[in-house]
Computed example of a mutant assay.
Amino acid sequence: MSIGRPRDAARDRAILVATLDLLAEAGYPALRIDEVARRAGVAKTTIYRRWPSKGEMVLDAIAAQLGDRSIEETGDPLHDLRRLLEVTYERLAETVAGRALPALAAEIMGDAGLAEEYRRRFVHPLRERARALIGRAIDQGLLRSDVDPDLLMDAVAGPSLYRPIALGVPAPAGSASAVFDLVIHGARNH
Rank of each mutant, 00 (worst) to 15 (best):
G4A: 09
G4Y: 11
R5Q: 09
P6M: 03
R7G: 14
R7T: 15
D8Y: 04
D8S: 14
R13V: 09
A14P: 03
A14W: 01
A14K: 11
T19H: 06
D21C: 00
Y28P: 12
A30W: 09
L31W: 00
R38G: 04
T45L: 04
Y48W: 15
R49W: 08
R49M: 04
W51N: 11
P52S: 14
S53G: 02
S53T: 13
K54C: 10
K54G: 05
K54E: 05
E56Q: 11
E56A: 06
V58I: 09
D60V: 03
A61I: 08
A61N: 01
I62M: 15
A63C: 10
G67Y: 10
D68G: 11
S70I: 04
I71V: 14
I71L: 09
E73Y: 05
H79M: 10
L81T: 13
R83L: 11
L84R: 02
L85V: 05
Y89Q: 05
Y89D: 03
E90Q: 01
A97F: 06
G98S: 07
G98V: 04
P102C: 07
A105V: 03
A105K: 07
A105H: 07
I108P: 03
E116T: 12
E116V: 05
E117K: 01
R120N: 10
R121F: 05
R121V: 07
R121D: 12
H124M: 13
H124Q: 15
L126D: 08
A130L: 07
A132L: 08
A132I: 01
L133Q: 07
I134E: 03
R136S: 14
S145D: 15
S145K: 14
D148I: 00
P149V: 12
D150R: 12
L152S: 11
D154Q: 15
A157H: 00
P159M: 06
S160D: 11
Y162F: 11
P164K: 09
V169H: 01
P170S: 07
A171N: 14
P172G: 08
A173Y: 13
A173I: 10
A176S: 11
S177Y: 09
V179I: 12
F180L: 10
D181Q: 10
D181G: 00
R188S: 09
N189S: 14
N189W: 13
